[in-house]
Write a protein that binds this DNA or RNA. Sequence first.
RNA 1: CACCCCGUAGUCUAAAGGUUAGGAUGUCGGUCUUUCACACCGAAGAUGCUGGGUUCAAGUCCCGCCGGGGUGGCCA
Length: 467
Amino acid sequence: MSVITRFAPSPTGFLHIGGARTALFNWLFAQHHGGHMLLRIEDTDRARFTEGAVTAIHEGLHWLGLDWHGEPISQFAGAGRHGDVARQLLADGKAYHCYCSPEELKEMRAAAKAEGRSLRYDGRWRDRDPADAPKDQAPVIRLKAPQSGATVIQDLVQGEVTVQNSEMDDMVLLRADGTPTYMLAVVVDDHDMDVSHIIRGDDHLTNAVRQSQIYNLMGWEAPQVAHIPLIHGADGAKLSKRHGALGVEAYRDMGILPAALRNYLLRLGWSHGDDEIIETAQAIEWFNLESVGKSPSRFDIPKLENLNSHYIRTMAESELCGLLSDQMVMSMDRALTDVELARLPLAIGALKERAKTLVELADRAAFLLDDRPLAMEEKAAKLVTGEAPALLAKTHACLGGVADWNHDDLAAAVRGLAEAEGLKLGKLAQPLRAALTGRNASPGIFDVLYFLGRQESLDRIGDHMEQ
RNA sequence: CACCCCGUAGUCUAAAGGUUAGGAUGUCGGUCUUUCACACCGAAGAUGCUGGGUUCAAGUCCCGCCGGGGUGGCCA
């Protein structure tokens, strides 16, 4: 039997980072077993549904590089089928009509709470004569759940989980308005979609036990389940808006690479010995549910950035150049000229060692843009005062005589000048760096000269030298 | 309140019941160097939540306590 997993997010407006990890695990597991992952949108809550929210999930998954098999499935579209299953259960005597009004249930819970009893539905319509049904109250259909014994599920991550049936009440399957509840819809859909493995957040663990009751009563074979721990924020609390980045697009905007996020999310709660850098192909080969940890983990941006810098350094330079120019266009809010664009491939090797994110990379590359006179950072401005203008004038003259504008000849010229002036190279290099880049930190100074080319370099030096 | 799950350095984690609890990240220091970064070297950082028990031996198995999380809807 082939492995079929599914990712089933609610359309909340973005692909939540926790959902992204759930999707990743589902995808890796399916890939590992040569199966496939399906996508189902849990859109039965029509009041909150928007088409844009579905698009956001698609885009998030595409960006992360996680593809699904076939057309996305709308859970809402299956409402008719869900209703049929509920009615079948009813006909088989495995479910019953409950005529409690919402007010009555509310009172029941209030009374139970006051007396310190369980808040569960007390099953008052379970065995009552339907002839007692009030005329003015449309009924819901509740599952006639077992009342004694225990329900046990074998979870691939959590192990054996046992809940006494006395701890669970008769859940609503079909609402008074005829629409199915989530509990029913999930079970029917997973069954109809031939899902073999359900991998989801462990906030569904107790739901899984209740859902298994539906499988049992329908006589269906239940899929294997694996409930993975949730991701928490740096403070240990559940990830929420106040933790900042929530959706994967927020990480994209921070300049995080999909490969880095995949690697980070994978290692959060899953491990393979001491391995840290695990590329996707390797992850597919290694991934298993047994190695998923059971404790919740905290999201740590510095470690993500460390992984990101690794992927920036190791990815193909041509591809990185494309990402860099896109990022620069976004950061600078203008298109790049052909001259500027031509500098990117020259500088990318030196630049990529110095950035943890694409945003930082673009910032470090800003000096490659022709925006004279250069905006000077405070520390750089100080470097071009005092003796510097005179020194820069000599440098200008010296460099003007370099016939072949390449790294080695430029290095020889600048080193020669420093020696002639009786200066350490740094004394000359720092003002030069400031004049050329507007910063006090940059790639090697001979590289910078080379990237900018003769004319631009000399012009920038000219802006700061003694006339 | 009830039930379920979890608890190893700041963070992510490793270790069929068996050396000095390993690695990564972060932090600090150093080497290299024209700056920054990379790379490399080194350091600090864990009385394993806590208290019992089983065992020749417990991070690992059992029980209690504490702490965190989840669930307890005609939300998903």
